[in-house]
Design a protein around this nucleic acid. Structure first.
Lengths: 233, 233
DNA sequence: TCGTCAACGTCAATGGTGTTGGCATAAGGG
DNA sequence: CCCTTATGCCAACACCATTGACGTTGACGA
């Protein structure tokens, strides 16, 4: 019986592209992330990605089933980043806080990717790893399973929700980010005070507020509530 | 000097399409919303939208500058729905709660549209109207402007964040929604318990939890915090 | 050393996409 | 009644994702 050699990632054939580039899954995902950052979501196409890699567009299909599959890989990459951005201390509230901010930061570090993949995160391997981590922290802290699951759910939804929204505003303008404040000031100024008196009255505060996130405060609120629940047991 | 007649929406020429349909901005947006619901984001194309309207794809460009412009109109429509879904009582906490849930419901009523437009809401007319309403409620309740702005920010980000995320899970499967629970149960079952012990231990709870939203509880938390702030003045 | 074969890169073609310019036509206003 | 303008259609353009055929390379077994 002929022993078929199972394809093994360890001994891959490393060929080279026309331009001499060596391709890997990771290199493609990284390049895609860079293109997203530099040219926005509309700038990430198979052809252009191939061009950036020094390869033909169709070559990408040797590594991913299609652009959709690539999107899933990008989503996964964001969570991989999130998992390396926090440190466990053993104190559950500190750990959750660190993990939440790490997720948030990973998203904000790649706003276009965050927006593009917002609806495709569920079930990605590293996203599942994050879920596992959150549940581990909560159950180790002593929360009974029903509470742990409820808090987990609120925690991850909150983190991703704020992250996606804040990333969205950050991802918006292809133009440089410097003139942003003036853009918004102009936007508020253009609103007729007659129809929007309350926005007009607080316009300066709204502009000043716009660049800091509401997430940390909301996260603290959630953690405080969880602390109270744990104490009530 | 010839007096140029300014185009006026009030006296439009209402022509008819080949199929006898009469087109309007609203009809196009409604049709687009229906197509999103029925065929998903990928199913909404200029040609197919034209087909559904009994019109040529290019005719859409008489009403919208492009598909992007149409997307903005769809985003606006969601907030228009949100504004009609709540009732003012005069009690600020009840009002905010009602408005928040109304925004959330409007998004969940059109999950695909919610996901598609998640990054394009800022500055839409009806979104601005929602902002104005929130600020009005808070300032009338007696919050000083800095607090009002901070709470407004947290409130709207929270509402939209949870809404977008929950809509994302709802928008995912082109298949019918009935078998969903089994899909997730299978997903969790496929996870090796060795690598994901905490998910494995709580799989049944996770599945049971999956269909109810964490938003109402989070909203109550925010309102309670705001109440405390107001009392401390 | 060499033959085999799978992995992987390229090329060319297909059908679908948003968008535009030209042209036809109907609806009112003068 | 005619003229302007809004609004419809058609044809064409450039680009897109995806696929199948084909060439090339490198690793491994004999």
């Amino acid at each position: 019986m002929a022993k078929r050699v199972v394809p093994d990632a360890a001994r891959q054939r490393r060929r080279r592209t026309k331009e001499g580039q060596v391709l890997t899954h990771d290199l493609i995902v990284e390049t895609a992330l860079r293109m997203l950052r530099e040219h926005g979501a509309a700038g990430l196409t198979a052809r252009r990605l191939g061009l950036a890699l020094g390869a033909d567009a169709s070559t990408i299909y040797r590594y991913f089933r299609g652009m959709d599959d690539l999107t899933l890989a990008i989503a996964d990459e964001l969570f991989a980043h999130a998992l390396t951005g926090w440190r466990a201390t053993g104190e559950w509230r500190a750990d959750l806080r660190s993990l939440g901010l790490s997720i948030y930061d990973a998203y904000l570090a790649h706003p276009q990717a965050a927006v593009l993949t917002a609806s495709r995160v569920a079930g990605r391997p590293h996203e599942v790893a994050v879920d596992e981590t959150i549940l581990a922290i909560l159950r180790t802290a002593g929360f009974p399973d029903p509470d742990a699951v409820r808090i987990y759910h609120a925690f991850i939804d909150q983190a991703l929700g704020f992250a996606v929204l804040d990333a969205a505003t950050l991802a918006l303008p292809p133009a440089t980010r410097a003139a942003d404040e003036q853009v918004w000031q102009a936007t508020y100024a253009r609103l007729p005070a007659a129809t929007h008196p309350h926005i007009a009255a607080t316009a300066h505060l709204l502009v000043a507020n716009m660049n800091d996130s509401a997430y940390p405060a909301a996260l603290d609120l959630l953690l405080a509530s969880a602390t109270a629940q744990l104490a009530a047991l």
